[in-house]
Design a protein around this nucleic acid. Structure first.
Length: 804
RNA sequence: GCGGAUAUGGUGGAAUUGGCAGACACGCCAGAUUUAGGUUCUGGUGGGAAACCGUGCAGGUUCAAAUCCUGUUAUCCGCACCA
């Protein structure tokens, strides 16, 4: 038998699979469907990272197993190809981003195909293809028509290097998530998407889906729903200052109020405020600070200025209290003003100590002179008029009733989630299909004019004024108003990269449809995605955005399910061999091409699955991969000891146990132990010196989803079955045959191991104990002592507890 | 500061959910094959001379704890003045 040579075997089978359309999904099949999906990659210039195949192999294994189990499987792939790195490369090298994208995709595609994934390449999609972004634009128009896309003058996060607006989610520690440059606040008119309208459902519908608990928690925390009340405080300026609080029960403990430096009332009160200079100085100071500085100051001392000339009245007890401005109160949350209860809030406590303000205890249980008492579970209300003696929870209910009754407050639910800033001042994104007419305002482009294509431009640089490169394209920009026919200007901002990835799973179901983003039949057959795997880094943003769009499409009757993904899992990162994140600067990057070249795709796939717990980060090991290559070699060499025959009795139990274990482990992402089980089986086979045809057949089928090329080769050469191994039936185990007739039982005395015995699996407790006491070491230990207790765990152990 | 996770041999990691700790690999050691290196094959490999001791650390519950409880330390990730 010739040597195992992956370079000869692998391209041959990849070609055969592609030529026969072996992995093409069928629309309108009467088989049960299974839609497996991985996050489609951004085709970067660097090519594939070894992290990509970890996720792709994992779901490839699931997809391949489902096909073998008789499902009509959709396992698609595409390109999330808009984005900044491509645009920056284009600017630097004076090439069109579309050309760069095309090149990168070709490279990525060749790399992915060399790994033998069972993607349905006939459904490949690309977010930068006008036939695709036509529908991204179409969805935007539907959002616009329903009032969920709107233009708004707001302070936005502005990246000083990208010259571009960022969503809140893209700002990390006051720096741009992509380039790491400083982010400053700027006033700009921006397209916004009203994701906040879906905040409740985005939380509540997490109950409908199978996501890891930590992912659900992350989504909930990001949306940040809190239940509380709004309370109106009359002021000496003659108006009312409204605050939001989650602790209306502590209303009697309010000793001052704090407004954000950006609060609009400060303008209204200019004539009343006596220390205006001081206030203005503080406002300027706060405005100068970037988010990063403001965050860094978080741990430092609180600052603020007391307003002279305006005070507030506590509506529940009529007490006059001072008003401060301080940057620890954010204009973007609640009402931009708070009631301060220093006794029961750590921030208010710190502020009160600094400014020498009174601290009034209204919940008994702590020492408010030492620190704020914030526990809601144990306290009892004091100094609180009508609330005295109540628990915190009861007091919350009672005070809300009281506020409503008196008309001085109301129930209120608040969210941390902000509306989604949707414009980017960039070239390489979907043009926003809106024109602005002086007479008619913002007008939607007629759907018949979609796709609105990106025009060819001279330069992709953003303008110095911070406008999109499209702003200089007057020929493109000048148009007529679809509404009145008068002169109008096109919107020159483009959509963020998140847009194309917010609905791509829908397109896979019907990727060449020109009439709709996908036909209703295709959507109702394939949706939802049955299993979606991706990285933890996308569990807040991408998941949230795509769930939002999907819910919107559900509401307007385009999609049949309220949630896009039935099940979501996450893979861990592959680290460099020094346990650090792979990066060029650390010099620990592993190139997948080199691994395929040296060991073959099957070995690469097996190693990435064997490397450790799928959901945890794992370091790459150049030594470890050799073990997987050895395993493939040894599998191939089984052909040397192949003989005719059925499953032999001495291997039957182990074989059935392995079928069970491999099948179960694939379902729970425990690929490492599935492979270990196959290694164990192989070791046992080699111990017998031979393998029978039937054993070989089962082994090849089990291994096929993991190492498909070598399995096809062995399958064909030895005529183990009809057609492709990849499409043959998945082996079925017999539960009865998984049970061993004889088992080894451990014998303990006082919990310490004293012997082992081989016994029949269905032995009774009495029989087991009797046998145990005959064991030499056991007899010695219990001799002359009183037996206090006897424990028998069937098929596992006997424990005899003795006393002197 | 808050929230989440993790901690097991020289290394990556197993342990059917409270029941033989270290499966399966890597590495290492010894031997065989080979002109040599590599490959391949066989055996060994937590510590300790032994009684025994061993799952970050200190307690506890239990006949029995890597697994449950209390406290504690370290590392990683997420959020970060959200009233």
């Amino acid at each position: 038998m010739e040597k195992y040579e992956p370079k000869r075997i692998e391209p041959r089978w990849q070609k055969k699979w592609e030529e026969t359309g072996a992995f093409h999904a069928v629309n309108g099949s009467d088989k049960p469907k299974f839609f497996a999906m991985i996050e489609f990659p951004y085709p970067s210039g660097q090519g594939l990272h070894v992290g990509h195949p970890r996720s792709y192999t994992a779901l490839d294994i699931v997809a391949r197993k489902r096909r073998m189990q008789g499902y009509n499987v959709l396992y698609p792939i595409g390109w999330d190809a808009f984005g900044l790195p491509t645009e920056n490369f284009a600017i630097k090298n004076h090439v069109h981003p579309a050309i760069v994208t095309q090149k990168n995709i070709a490279h990525f595609k060749a790399q992915l195909q060399s790994l033998g994934f069972s993607f349905d390449w006939s459904r490949e999609i690309n977010t930068t293809d006008p036939e695709y972004y036509k529908w991204t634009q179409w969805i935007f128009l539907q959002l616009f028509k329903k009032g969920l896309a709107y233009k708004s003058q707001t302070t936005v996060n502005w990246c000083t290097s990208c010259k571009c607006v960022l969503a809140n989610e893209e700002v990390v520690n006051g720096k741009c998530e992509r380039c790491g440059s400083d982010v400053v606040q700027r006033e700009k008119s921006q397209w916004m998407l009203k994701i906040t309208a879906y905040a409740d459902r985005l939380i509540d519908d997490l109950d409908l889906v199978d996501y890891p608990e930590r992912v659900k928690t992350q989504q909930r925390n990001w949306i940040g729903r809190s239940h509380g009340a709004e309370v109106d405080f009359p002021t000496t300026a003659g108006d009312k200052l409204t605050v939001y609080t989650t602790r209306p029960d502590t209303l009697y403990g309010v000793t001052y109020m704090v407004m954000s430096p950006e609060h609009p009332y400060l303008k209204k009160w200019v004539d009343k405020i006596e220390n205006l200079d001081e206030v203005r100085a503080y406002q300027e100071e706060a405005a100068k600070k970037s988010d990063l500085e403001r965050t860094a100051d978080n741990s430092k001392e609180k600052t603020g200025v007391r307003l002279q000339g305006v005070t507030a009245i506590n509506p529940v007890n009529g007490k006059e209290i001072p008003i401060f401005i301080s940057d620890y109160v954010l204009i973007s949350y609640g009402t931009g003003a708070i009631m301060a209860v220093p006794a029961h809030d750590t921030r208010d406590w710190a502020f009160a100590k600094k400014f020498g303000l009174p601290i009034i205890e209204v919940v008994k249980g702590g020492n408010v002179e030492e620190e704020a008492f914030t526990d809601c579970a144990t306290g009892v209300m004091v100094n609180s008029g009508i609330l005295d003696g109540l628990s915190v929870e009861d007091a919350k209910v009672r005070i809300k009733e009281y506020l409503t009754e008196k008309g001085i407050g109301r129930d209120k639910v608040n969210f941390k989630l902000r509306d989604w800033v949707f414009s980017r001042q960039r070239y390489w994104g979907e043009p926003i299909p809106i024109v602005h007419c002086d007479k008619c305002g913002y007008v939607a482009l007629p759907e018949s004019e979609l796709p609105l294509r990106l025009p060819e431009v001279e330069s992709y640089e953003t303008t110095d004024s911070g406008e999109s490169p499209l702003a200089n394209m007057l020929e493109w920009r000048n148009t007529t108003c679809p509404c009145c026919g008068g002169p109008a200007l096109r919107e020159t901002d483009t959509m963020p990269q998140w847009a194309g990835s917010s609905w791509y799973f829908l397109r896979y179901t019907d990727p060449h449809n020109n009439e709709a983003l996908a036909s209703p039949e295709a959507l109702s057959y394939w949706m939802p995605v049955d299993w979606y795997n991706g990285g933890m880094e996308h569990t807040t943003l991408h998941l949230l955005y795509s769930r939002f769009w999907h819910k919107f499409l559900y509401d307007i009757g385009v999609v049949p399910t309220p949630e896009p993904y039935a099940k979501r899992t996450s893979h861990g990162m592959i680290l460099g061999s020094n346990h650090e994140k792979m990066s060029k600067s650390r010099g620990n990057v592993v190139n997948p091409d080199a691994i395929v070249d040296e060991y073959g795709a099957d070995t690469m796939r097996l190693y990435e699955m064997f490397i450790g717990d799928f959901e945890k980060a794992a370091p790459w090991s150049d030594e470890g991969i050799k073990g997987c290559r050895r395993f493939v070699d040894r599998f191939y060499n089984l052909q040397n000891i192949l003989q005719e025959g059925d499953v032999r009795p001495q291997l039957e139990t182990l074989l059935h146990q392995t079928i069970k274990k491999v099948g179960d482990d694939i379902e729970t992402l425990k690929y490492n132990t599935a492979i270990a089980a196959m290694m164990t089986l192989m070791n046992a086979i080699y111990d017998t010196g031979a393998i029978t045809r039937e054993e070989m057949k089962v082994f090849t089928l089990l291994l096929c989803p993991f190492a498909p090329h070598v399995c096809e080769e062995v399958w064909e050469k030895n005529h183990l079955g009809e057609g492709l191994c990849s499409l043959a039936a998945w082996p079925v185990y017999d539960e009865a045959k998984c049970q061993e007739a004889m088992v080894e039982i451990v014998v303990q005395v006082n919990g310490k191991l004293r012997g082992r015995m081989k016994v029949s699996a269905d032995i009774t407790k009495d029989e087991a104990l009797e046998a145990a006491k005959k064991e030499e070491k056991v007899a010695a230990e219990i001799n002359g002592k009183t037996i206090v207790k006897e424990i028998y765990v069937p098929k596992k152990l006997v424990n005899i507890v003795v006393k002197k």
